[in-house]
Design a protein around this nucleic acid. Structure first.
Length: 602
RNA sequence: GACUCCGUAGCUCAGCUGGAUAGAGCGCUCGCCUUCUAAGCGAGUGGUCGCAGGUUCAAAUCCUGCCGGGGUCACCA
């Protein structure tokens, strides 16, 4: 059974068509005014304008047709031409039962599923993840889960940053500290030691150290540039170091991601497409798309009207235009434009069936970079621009309103954020004092972890992803109001009611909706499918967050207003238990899509 | 300078493919635990939707222009 909103939309659409008007006017949605209606259709007014007719007259005819529909209790015209619909208790009851028994908890598959390569995470090998990496991880992972649930075929790839200047910084800084290491002996032919010469802490220390020096000292920066160029050119010792750095980093990254329930199918990185870079460059040159400029090779991308070259002191800058990409720099090295293009080539031509779409979940500040890469990829014929998609998100700012810096040091590590959230969860759990005395230390730790993850993921996902937000520890770990822990609490309470009822021998039965709180609850359940599809279409997880939060609220109101397991009437008790079970099913399903797991007790 | 995102309640934010009296959370004020988990529920408080024009029967929503803030603009990614 489709959602009530969908059934009603189809019926209203058919009624519009019968009048010679477009079916799209029949869109029915939840009413803004629950005291007046369950659902409303506003299409008559738009249709009247298109057809040059009286809106109330059209609304009256549509309402007349809808009255005959099996789900509809009443259909009335209000104001300038709103159609207010009430559905029958029987329709709501049937809908609740359908949600309860549905594998998708009332959701429905996407109409046109796609094969999607999802690129998110993007951690750098040189440095531990910081708070800014939270967003890509959490938004990307949620989209991954959502896409799969709705029928898309997803391959996720973390796309490690392991090929750029940061590797040069790391290599040269290590050489300064330990010049005797075998990796720096150009005459050595191998094999190199299997044990890594550094730990994650070493890497975390070496990188900012080198970066700061390079900023202050051009000669120091030049050495990093040289080191990276040599590494890219294939110097064996440097490649061996690269492999060590990657392995050390990945082990650490996996821990941070695992804490947040974030996973990837692939852990490929920029260095994996190293071998494809010459081919990318050759293809651009062969097609005449690359031009030489100041010793470097660039690919101009500006379109008609965009390209405004301005010459100043003998140098040409491209003011007010889409800048070209730097294919090969003047040292013969390549930057992230080129590796990104090589990665597209890899994904399209070397990894099985080509994806329908490649989606990048990366900071909004890189929007222009992606426009450039996408244009270049399209020019090369790798993939049309409209199949490449950048899902940007706002920065996580500090209290000063500025984004957390990543290269000056002093940033909050993601691992530390995770620990802080976990500590806070423990503290709040102890303060609430609700966990049963008999609960083992292991289970308590598990509950605290689930609460911490719910707090972190939900507080990040509930924001519209495009806007910046201020990092506020209280907000991340708040256990009151519109938060992940509130949702967990609501879900745990449903489970608790159901468990206790089962222990008393009471099972869910046939649903018979009668009370307002029950009607409101089922109407909320009915909106799940639309929320899922909306979240997928717009790539906006907060739409799903809003739905689940409203569902938890509707359940809490229902719980407060009516007895469930404690109702003495057998039929009412069975019906309300079934309603509670439908809520549990949809809440758990939806929270799982957000990467949030509900414990049995808390 | 160009492009881009944002500007809605004291604070943090939804709503933006135009529709009825603009919604949440936090805060603040009341009320509710001898009954299923009060990390809860109910009621109240609180808004020139940045400003000015325009389109429309109807604008927070669409268009134009301003103002304010963030971001980006080839050899770091």
């Amino acid at each position: 059974m489709a959602s009530l909103a969908k059934e009603l939309s189809a019926a209203a659409g058919a009624a519009f068509e019968a009048m010679g008007l477009e079916a799209r006017f029949g869109e029915v949605r939840r009413s803004d005014k629950p005291e007046l209606a369950d659902f409303q259709c506003n299409g008559a007014m738009a249709a009247a304008k298109a057809a040059g007719r009286n809106p109330r007259e059209i609304a009256g005819e549509i309402a007349g047709a809808l009255k005959a529909h099996a789900l509809v209790l009443s259909a009335e015209v209000a104001g300038p031409g709103f159609i207010n619909l009430r559905v029958s208790d029987a329709a709501l009851s049937a809908r609740a039962e359908a949600v309860r028994g549905d594998a998708m908890a009332g959701g429905e598959k996407a109409a046109a599923p796609e094969r999607i390569t999802l690129d998110f995470g993007g951690p750098n090998v040189a440095k531990p993840m910081h708070v800014g990496h939270l967003r890509s991880a959490v938004i990307g992972d949620t989209l991954q889960r959502l896409f799969r649930f709705l029928g898309d075929e997803v391959v996720s790839d973390t796309h490690l940053g392991d090929w750029g200047l940061q590797m040069g910084h790391l290599i040269s800084e290590l050489q300064d500290e330990q010049p005797g290491l075998i990796y720096f002996d150009a005459g050595f032919t191998g094999p190199y030691p299997a044990e890594p010469p550094v730990t994650m802490d070493d890497l975390a220390r070496l990188y900012p150290q080198a970066s700061n020096k390079a900023k202050a000292d051009e000669a120091r920066n030049e050495r990093s540039q040289k080191a990276v160029a040599e590494m890219q050119a294939g110097r064996a010792g440097f490649r061996a170091l690269l492999t060590h750095f990657i392995n050390v980093s990945v082990a650490s990254l996996k821990q941070d991601y695992a804490f947040l329930n974030v996973s990837f199918d692939l852990w490929k990185g920029e260095s994996d497409v190293d071998g494809l870079i010459p081919e990318v460059i050759a293809r651009f040159k062969a097609k005449g798309l690359a031009v030489e400029s100041g010793g470097a090779w660039i690919v101009p991308l500006a379109r008609e009207g965009e390209h405004i070259p301005v010459e100043k002191n003998g140098e040409i800058t491209y003011k007010n235009a889409m800048p070209p990409i730097l294919l090969v720099n003047s040292r013969g090295g390549t930057g992230y434009h080129t590796t990104d293009l090589a990665t597209i080539l890899d994904r399209v031509e070397h990894m099985g069936p080509a994806p329908d779409r490649i989606v990048y979940v990366v900071d909004q500040r890189q929007a222009q970079h992606f426009v450039q890469v996408f244009r270049a990829a399209a020019k090369l014929g790798l993939m049309p621009e409209d199949r490449l998609e950048h899902i940007g998100f706002g920065t996580v700012n500090g209290a000063d309103g500025k984004p957390f810096k990543t290269r000056e040091g002093g940033v909050l590590r993601l691992a530390d954020l995770n620990s802080m959230a976990l500590e806070e969860a423990f503290r709040k759990i102890d303060a609430a004092g609700k966990l049963p005395e008999d609960m083992s230390a292991e289970e308590r730790a598990d509950v605290a972890h689930k609460v911490a993850v719910a707090a972190l993921r939900f507080s990040d996902l509930m924001n519209t992803r495009i806007t910046n937000y201020v990092f506020d520890l209280d907000r991340f770990t708040s256990f009151e109001g519109k938060t992940g822990p509130y949702l967990l609490y609501a879900a745990v309470r449903v489970k608790s009611v159901l468990r206790k009822a089962a222990e008393a021998g009471h099972e869910p039965g046939a649903v018979a909706v009668t009370e307002d709180a029950e009607r409101a609850l089922v109407l909320q359940l009915d909106g799940f499918g639309a929320a899922l599809l909306g979240a997928r279409e717009k790539r906006m997880p907060h739409i799903l967050c809003e739905h689940l939060y409203s569902l938890a609220q509707a359940f809490s109101a229902f719980y407060g207003a009516l007895p469930i397991a404690s109702d003495p009437d057998d039929a009412k008790r069975a019906s309300r238990l079934a309603l509670a079970d439908a809520v549990r099913h949809q809440l758990e399903t939806g929270l799982d899509l957000l990467g949030i797991t509900v414990p049995e007790r808390m």
